[in-house]
Design a protein around this nucleic acid. Structure first.
Length: 1137
RNA sequence: GCUCAAGUGGCGGAAUUGGUAGACGCGCUGGAUUCAAAAUCCAGUUCUUUCGGGAGUGUGGGUUCGAUUCCCACCUUGAGUACCA
């Protein structure tokens, strides 16, 4: 019998299915092992050969682990909610459930053909109500939880309520919305129910908020950041704009730090960890608040405060008399509200000390222009406290109290009240604003020479001076118009506008200009930066562009060309108390000082934003939520699942509501706990009720949420469901989860690094906090399989309008024309077909007037993808098949090679339907079999690497399978024969060499090299004519994870009734590999020249002697004396001459 | 720009506690078998050569008796990210 892959594979696939060979048990004495693939989205295109790569690898691993005595869980399912089915539904009206069902059937058929050892009894589908019941359940758990920073975990919302009831919220240390009013326990109890709910919503782990979202008008939905690529939607490439919408969000930011730390405990690929680290974007630094100076003072001095003048002031400072410095010491160290600046320009006068906040000036008496000064200061509303040098030097405390008495406390307090009122009304007020900034370099704070706010920053309109108002508004408008995409496109352009306002430097008291610029992002940090042009390139560029001062605060740093961004080794200079310190120390001291003076504090910032969880789509999980008085209410878990309603169309409503807005029966009856008809809703104050008109009485029927959950909801916990997939009482039983715990090996694509894999870790940690799952990381080890790229085929069409039909030109013909710099018309091949292709009615002039240089002549051809199935392994195109492919090519003409063939050019591209380069695994299974496909996909190269598919290569593994088959069969008939004789030493050596290699390779996930060693083993055993059961039986087990069908067939023929999948893996025995001699490579100056065989037990000296005595060595040395001889017994001999 | 990964024959790739570069396979060349083809089998296949040899793992340096492997600088390609303060 010859090797008949079709019969063998069909037979065993049927056998495995019927006997449930791979069904995993939740009760076993064996150790558990959980091997998981990222479940697929069942697309309409079906599988191509690139898809199963990871599944084959995980299947090999799962089968190997079974041989090694593990109880293996290896499930599969479908991520079956998603956009393509919905898009198809919009176009055709076909219900997405139906499309999905059909696609799943195709997937299953294709997967079954490849012989995977999946336990299909555990299949899950995210779009199945029995599954999404639990997705909704998790959502409710999140809603009922808050993040307690003190215990550093999520807790039930009831613990938060009890804190509120006893102590208000002052001491609550939670991850919550940014702005929360504080209240006492008494106040909490007095709040209305609705008010309490509003407050709680600000703490819940899933919450409703008006968020600026990525709105994609073409898709009619909101997209997550990871669903946007280069400013357009990942699917379809539609433009995306920013829009404010009421959305559900997930407080993933609460877990930022733990998500980061958890990476150290899991064995995931470094690049993937890096990109999660990057995405979380932890940066350590400080918050610093800058006071905005009142406009009256700053505005008038605008222009007079030149940098030259500042330099003068600096000079003056250094020359301060003793008394001045003594007083300054005291004033400066004084904490709190009363903050003085030293020697500051006010109008045309240089003050000794001034406090802008309290409008108080402290002056030494005896200035030449005393009267003019006094008048000016008074007119500006300042109080002046006069002191003398002697007073200061004699008793500085008396002076201090004198100053304190003079400070305008009451007046200012009043002023502030007025200002606050004004602000509330929207009237701009020049005083008492603070700008909070986040910085990672508080050590460079003395280098601040200006500040920049994001154009959207809320303070901009309040601090801008009348003079600058116009320019600022114009700039803000211009920025708002620019889309994200435009902004990204020109990173280089520096733009910004001065607001006219100034802030006060918290340490030096120096005036700092406040600018706005779109290089500052409203969404990161506080939307404002303190600009340190000498230490940050963007600030530097901005300062250069607008001619702003760039003070240097680094020792020995050249900042004439660019900013000095280095940290290590940098010494801070010109920075008061920080001068002379290195980066690390300066950083710590700066934060310490900021905290001490109450003007800032150390802080860790994360780039990770809370995840928007609402989608305006139909084909997703509905929220178990209804609205009462505008507040969201969870439906009791015992009424889950809330199943998707039927709609007549899958588009958003005319009113802009999501597709669920079209459902007629989509309201919740809180009395009967049923979904009821919308017309029954008469309760007031719900957003939808309002639009339908107010009704008189609340009947307990409320509108349901119209959004659905995003694609990542169902995939964020499915690995837990496989442990107990049919449980209708629980998410999964505690017993099952305690047994399986987590995924031991997870295989899937790296494209999910910042999506699925981050969200899944987040949910797992949350579920862990709430004692639902036993571990807080769901996958111990993860491997990213590389992509299998396709080899596209291109044909070239002449690009002219004056032809009756398409004309295609063979590959080398075009290459020739380009090389020879000629036009196609210069060749006789063209003349032959010319009469039949040129339309005589059209102008013939310049039909093929190509430019003669190589580059531009290409523009006269258009490369067109040909379906790869029309091309054979020698790149020849099947012209007839190509013509029949498309109506437009029916009469096409072809200019062929000289040998009459027509060749295509090849290019490696991503495998995709639109590039006509997909290879269907079904066709491969048909022709070569699943075992050949599995071996070949592994043989292509390292699992993690991306590699091109070339079908021609499969003949190698196919003939390997035939040779393997032959080892167990003999004669022309191919009768199955094995001998019971003892195996020879040589045969045992081959076997054990292979066992060792395969064991190591699987441990390293180096599947490509084990296929090589199988080939070597079979070649060697073939040469030895080995037919011993003692060798061939273990060999079948070795190969069975890779090529399970042929192995199972041979195993059966060897007389076993049980499946090979449970056979024990052969054990390596080193004694078969022991050698007595070694063929030494003899090298001269490191270059190997020849081999000499010596016994392995020879020592260094003996070896050296023997080698030097050898005639080949003597010949190679040619009379020279070796300087040195390196002998490594068992390895090499190197002679240095 | 930043972060990461990778550069080895015509092609996919192998070789790392530093020790014979190109395993294994595809493709190609020649031969056997065949009326012929497919299939199968045998031999060869890094480049170069005056057939002694010489050169060679992206480029240039370095460490070493010896470097694809370690170190430094650079170039190229791919992936991710994008004004993150």
């Amino acid at each position: 019998m010859q090797y008949d892959h079709k019969a063998i594979e069909a037979n065993w696939q049927k056998h495995w299915a019927e006997n449930q060979t791979f069904k995993a048990s939740n009760h076993s004495d064996k150790p558990k092992y959980y091997v998981l693939d990222m479940f697929p989205y069942p697309s309409g295109a079906g599988l191509h050969v690139g898809h199963p790569l990871g599944y084959i690898a995980s299947d090999i691993y799962a089968r190997y682990k079974r041989h090694k005595g593990f109880n293996v869980l290896h499930p599969q399912g479908y991520d079956s909610f998603g956009l393509p089915a919905e898009q198809y539904a919009i176009q055709t009206g076909q219900h997405p459930a139906k499309t999905t069902e059909e696609n799943i059937k195709t997937y299953r058929r294709q997967l079954d053909r490849i012989g995977f050892s999946f336990d299909w009894s555990r299949e899950v589908r995210t779009s199945n109500p029995e599954y999404y019941k639990w997705t909704q359940w998790i959502f409710i758990q999140l809603f009922n939880s808050w993040y307690n920073k003190d215990s550093d975990k999520a807790e039930d919302i009831s613990t938060l309520v009890s804190i509120f009831e006893t102590a208000g919220n002052k001491k609550v240390n939670a991850v919550s919305d940014d702005e929360i009013q504080s209240f006492t326990a008494a106040a909490w109890k007095k709040f209305s129910k609705k008010k309490q709910e509003e407050i709680l919503l600000q703490y819940r782990l899933t919450f409703l908020s008006e968020t600026e979202v990525n709105w994609c008008p073409a898709l009619g939905t909101v997209l997550a950041n990871d669903e946007i690529v280069n400013g357009v939607s990942e699917r379809g490439g539609h433009p995306v704009v920013r829009k404010k919408m009421m959305q559900w969000s997930m407080r993933i930011s609460a877990y930022a730090q733990r998500l980061l730390e958890g990476l150290n405990t899991i064995d995931w690929p470094q690049p993937l960890k890096d990109s999660q680290t990057n995405w979380i974007g932890r940066s350590q630094g400080a918050m610093v608040s800058f006071k905005v100076l009142p406009n009256e003072t700053s505005e008038e001095k605008e222009g007079t405060l030149s940098y030259k003048k500042i330099e003068e002031i600096k000079e003056l400072r250094q020359n301060s008399p003793k008394a001045t410095s003594a007083l300054w010491d005291v004033l400066r160290k004084k904490k709190g509200a009363v903050k003085f600046r030293q020697q500051y320009i006010l109008g045309d006068f240089l003050t000794d000390f001034v406090c802008f906040n309290k409008k108080t000036i402290v002056e030494f008496v005896g200035k030449e222009d005393e009267i003019a000064r006094a008048n000016y200061f008074a007119s500006e509303g300042y109080t002046v406290v006069y002191i003398t040098n002697d007073e200061v030097l004699e008793n500085i405390d008396t002076v201090l109290s004198k100053i304190n008495n003079g400070i305008q406390f009451p007046k200012i307090a009043e002023q502030q009240k007025v200002a606050k009122k004004k602000t509330k009304k929207g009237v701009s007020t020049p005083i008492n604003h603070q700008i909070e900034v986040f910085t990672t370099r508080p050590d460079t704070i003395f280098g601040v020479s200006f500040m920049t706010l994001a154009p959207e920053h809320e303070l901009v309109s309040q601090i801008v001076t009348d003079k600058q108002k116009k320019a600022v508004n114009e700039y803000i408008e211009a920025t708002a118009k620019r889309s994200e995409r435009d902004r990204m496109a020109d990173v280089k352009t520096i733009s910004g506008v001065f607001t006219g306002a100034y802030a006060e430097h918290p340490f030096t008291g120096k005036k700092v200009q406040i600018w706005i610029g779109d290089y500052v992002l409203a969404s990161y940090g506080t939307g404002a930066v303190m600009a340190v042009p000498c230490g940050d390139q963007r600030d530097y560029d901005f300062a250069k562009h607008f001619d702003i001062d760039i003070p240097n605060i680094f020792e020995n740093a050249d900042i004439s060309e660019e900013a000095h961004e280095g940290k290590e080794g940098t010494v801070i200079a010109n920075s008061d108390f920080l001068s002379g310190l290195k980066y690390k120390k300066a950083l710590k001291l700066a934060i310490y000082e900021l905290e001490k003076r109450g003007i800032g504090y150390g802080k860790i910032n994360y780039r990770l934003r809370d995840a928007v969880f609402s989608r305006q789509r139909y084909w997703g999980e509905p929220f178990p939520v209804y609205y009462k008085d505008g507040m969201p209410q969870m439906i009791d878990v015992k009424h889950l699942p809330i199943a998707l309603p039927e709609v007549e169309k899958y588009l958003p409503t005319e009113g802009g509501d999501p597709p669920l807005g079209r459902a007629e029966k989509w309201s919740w009856n809180t009395k009967t706990n049923e979904i009821v008809d919308n017309s029954l809703v008469i309760s007031s104050k719900s957003s939808r009720a309002e639009s339908r008109g107010e009704k008189s009485k609340d009947n307990g029927i409320y509108p349901l949420e119209l959004n659905t959950m995003p694609g990542w909801a169902g995939s964020s916990w499915y690995f837990n469901r496989y442990m107990d997939p049919t449980n209708s009482e629980e998410f999964a039983s505690k017993e099952a989860m305690d047994y399986w715990k987590d995924v031991d090996l997870y295989i899937g694509g790296s494209e999910h690094a910042t999506g699925h894999l981050l969200y899944a870790r987040f949910w797992q940690k949350f579920l862990f906090d709430r004692n639902i799952v036993p571990v807080d990381e769901f996958a111990k080890k993860l491997i990213n399989q590389g992509m299998i790229t396709g080899t596209s085929a291109f044909v070239y069409r002449l690009n002219t309008t004056q032809l009756k039909q398409s004309v295609f030109v063979s590959k080398s013909f075009i290459e020739k024309a380009i090389k020879e710099k000629k036009s196609i018309t210069d060749y006789p091949e063209y003349e032959k077909i010319r009469p039949s292709i040129v339309d005589s009615n059209k102008d013939k002039k310049g039909v093929f007037s190509f430019a003669t240089d190589g580059e531009t002549s290409w523009s006269s051809f258009i490369p067109i993808h040909s379906d790869v199935s029309f091309v054979n392994t020698s790149d020849e195109l099947d012209i007839e098949a190509f013509k029949n492919w498309r109506e437009e090519y029916k009469d096409a003409e072809f200019i062929s090679e000289e040998d009459g063939t027509f060749k295509v050019s090849r290019e490696v591209e991503k495998m995709s339907k639109s590039k006509y380069n997909v290879v269907n695994p079904d066709a491969i299974c048909e022709e070569y079999g699943a075992d050949a496909l599995r071996l070949f996909e592994m043989f292509l190269g390292p699992l993690e690497q991306s590699k091109p598919w070339k079908t021609s290569g499969i003949s190698g593994v196919y003939s390997f399978l035939k040779k393997l088959w032959k080892l167990y069969h003999s004669g022309d008939e191919g009768t199955f024969v094995v001998s019971e004789d003892k195996a020879t030493a040589e045969e045992l050596k081959t076997l054990h060499k292979t066992i060792k290699k395969v064991d190591e390779d699987i441990a390293n996930f180096s599947f490509n090299t084990s296929v090589s060693s199988f080939m070597i083993a079979v070649n060697e055993l073939g040469a030895l004519k080995c037919d011993k059961r003692a060798i061939l039986e273990p060999l079948a087990i070795l190969i069975s994870p890779y090529a399970p069908h042929i192995a199972e067939e041979l195993w059966n023929k060897l007389g076993h009734t049980a499946s090979i999948s449970t056979a024990e893996f052969p054990v390596f025995d080193g004694k078969h590999l022991v050698e007595s001699s070694k063929n030494y490579p003899i090298s001269f100056n490191g270059k190997m020249r020849f081999m000499l065989e010596f016994p392995l037990d020879m020592n260094k000296e003996e070896l050296e002697k023997a080698v030097l005595a050898n005639e080949k060595t003597i010949a190679q040395l040619d009379g020279r004396t070796p300087k040195k001889v390196i002998v490594v017994p068992g390895k090499i001999v190197n002679i240095v001459g």
